[in-house]
Design a protein around this nucleic acid. Structure first.
Length: 399
DNA sequence: TCTGGGGTCCTAGGACCC
DNA sequence: TCTGGGGTCCTAGGACCC
């Protein structure tokens, strides 16, 4: 989907269409209805805090702001850009809607988050049809139809890349954004893919692209021309070999139409850095709240976790994590808080904290658990919750 | 003007087991 | 006298993605 969050907001506030708009940064900046019926919006100039841009309209991007950028920094570049708070519930509704209409034409769908999917078009009737003028007439019509359905169901535009595999489709869906439709075969790779920066490949991030650059490898073509053994020497056998294959557009990953979550987490960045001793009470409240929300998430999704972990970001941005594996799965807020507390005790608490997070890992579906599993990890009745960790009532036989 | 929140996957060392 | 080979689980950190 094109500039998804911002585009959804423009459906609500059409008067902002054509203007630079960014979405991000907490709930403090709700538009206010004026006596004359118009709405008053916050601008980036008004913003103070630690938020980042989650999505910027193309008009805002033209001013140099982009997702991930701190709002304070963005305000320096585009002080008059409109600022809207994020509304994930609304974006999830639109996400569901666009995926539903795609599924009407092409049921094999792999989710890639709220605003992206892979679609397998291989088996769709008519997809192989050709015409004199266009050898890809069949698939072009199909992709156009999918775009039209998405637009009519949601009012939103999307961009599609039609290629032999997921790697190339992800790359190509970006080539003609917004509202793009790009069809590409392996034969097109030298002309259309090799001139692109290596960084455009999904899986080559800031670190890898900087290291490639240091080796004189800037474009995907440079990567394709590189010595594969040299790549393996520099990046390891796995990643090095993958880099080389990716440069030729080779990718045999299958569609994953279903997947179980591996972990759930909750984290928060404080408005001001908090010191573990000086702000002990505030941190304790935040910590408990995170554990409660995580437990609620687990219950809502009907999962239980066997590992509980914490994440801290210090004022210098260094991150530490600690985790503990439980004797049995749990979705209980008290048990999560207790075990996360044990993790915290293993972390240096000598400087201010910027972020605190709690994570539940090694998940399993709650209904797949043996009934006894509930108990041991701490989902105990109230009168047992004061027992020391991992302790059990004396009448319970040890395993 | 310091940089969100929610995820996945990979690596690597150590414990422990057969 | 100097020490196997393979497997799994646990933990911490880091790169990357949406």
């Amino acid at each position: 989907m094109d500039a998804f969050y911002a585009s959804v907001e423009l459906l609500r506030y059409p008067e902002l269409r054509g203007r630079p708009v960014v979405v991000g940064g907490g709930q403090r900046h709700q538009p206010v209805l004026q006596p004359d019926g118009s709405r008053r919006f916050a601008t980036l100039r008004d913003y103070a805090g630690r938020g980042v841009i989650t999505t910027a309209t193309y008009e805002a991007r033209a001013l140099g702001v982009h997702s991930g950028m701190g709002l304070m920094k963005a305000a320096a570049l585009a002080p008059d850009a409109m600022l809207l708070p994020t509304d994930f519930d609304e974006y999830r509704r639109y996400s569901r809607r666009f995926k539903e209409v795609v599924a009407e034409r092409a049921p094999s769908i792999e989710n890639r988050g709220i605003d992206e999917i892979y679609i397998d078009l291989t088996e769709i009737p008519g997809v192989q049809e050709t015409s004199e003028a266009d050898p890809y007439a069949g698939v072009r019509d199909l992709a156009s139809d999918i775009k039209a359905r998405v637009r009519s169901a949601t009012g939103l535009s999307c961009s599609i890349g039609v290629t032999p595999n997921k790697l190339l489709s992800k790359l190509c869906s970006d080539l003609e954004k917004p509202d793009g439709l790009t069809i590409l075969t392996l034969a097109d790779i030298p002309a259309r893919i090799w001139p692109l920066p290596a960084r455009r490949i999904n899986g080559i991030g800031p670190k890898a692209s900087a290291r490639l650059e240091a080796l004189g490898i800037r474009t995907i073509g440079d990567l394709a021309a590189a010595d594969p053994q040299g790549l393996v020497d520099h990046f390891g056998s796995n990643y090095g070999a993958w880099l080389y294959e990716a440069a030729y557009g080779r990718d045999d990953r299958p569609m994953m139409t279903f997947s179980e979550p591996k972990s759930l987490s909750r984290e928060t960045t404080f408005e001001q850095d908090l010191h573990p001793r000086h702000h002990r009470e505030a941190l304790g409240r935040i910590f408990t709240r995170l554990c409660e929300r995580l437990a609620a998430d687990l219950k809502a999704k009907q999962y239980a976790a066997k590992t509980i972990g914490v994440k801290l970001r210090y004022d210098d941005f260094k991150i530490v994590t600690r985790e503990i594996t439980l004797p049995a799965h749990t979705d209980d807020a008290d048990a999560i808080r207790r075990n996360a507390g044990l993790c915290l005790k293993r972390v240096p608490l000598d400087r201010r904290l910027r972020l605190l997070g709690v994570r539940a890992g090694t998940l399993c579906k709650a209904d797949a658990l043996p009934a006894s599993d509930d108990r041991a990890a701490g989902n105990a009745p109230r009168d047992e919750t004061t027992l020391p960790l991992f302790d059990r009532p004396t009448d319970t036989p040890a395993p």
